[in-house]
Amino acid sequence: MTALTAWLDGIGLLGPGLADWPTAARVLSGTQPWVHAPTVLPAPQALPAAERRRTGAVVKLALAAGLEAVAHAGADAATLAAVFSSSGGDGQNCDEICRTLASSERQLSPTRFHNSVHNAAAGYWGIATGATAACNALCAYDASFGAGLLEALTQVVTERSAVLLVAYDARYPEPLYGARPIPDGFGIALVLAPAPGARPLARLDVRLSEAPADTLTDAALEKLRGAIPAARSLPLLAQLARRAPGRVMIDYLDPWRIAVEVDACP
């Protein structure tokens, strides 16, 4: 296959001990040690108060990462197409619905129900930013970041317009945590464009590969990469943090990995 090419204009990141992309860039380039701390979820100020009260962890994660990337890119959120990809959606909400349905009452809250859709974060993103372009909501289990990257790049290449990619995962409460032990919230957002903007961060050339995925040299960060599907993006982020050209292999759907050629911009 020929490579899918896009220009990276902005990055947003939120994870354990990683408050934002500048912090993560210092950690991933080795200039600052990673200090593990629970992911801090900011209140989604962009939402009207009535909507803000209704949002759970996944929506807060996705909005925070998305807004940081859009601001970093100097882009207008209202005009961007968007791809949201998550391995599991809102686990807390799912747990409460299942408990209610297992009870004798079965009285679901309407808000819980409409928040149960996998595209809840995508829907709240539109309400928060006024974005009316195409917006997708994907899942590919552990390959959800890679699937989102491919969807975003095929949109950039065929529609010739900029796309915001947001990949995010949050912790399930017990008992679902026992079946799917994602340890904490992690959200990554990239603004990808078909041509270089005013200050692009890098050019990305993406293709499928069967070579093994890159791992991280820091054992704690490597553990994070393996534990949270959205954190499978960390080798790409580490390359970007080093501001150097190079090729990284991202986990995707067996037998495939995604090879990303990073041509960093000065």
């Binding site: 959606g89 859709v117 996998h118 595209n119 995508a122 917006c135 997708n136 909501a137 994907l138 899942c139 590919a140 699937a147 491919l150 969807e151 499928l208 995707y252 759907l253 495939w256």
Partner: peptide
């Protein structure tokens, strides 16, 4: 090949 689920209600 590539596979994905779209879940937008």
């Amino acid at each position: 090949g590539p596979a994905v689920v779209i879940s937008s209600a």
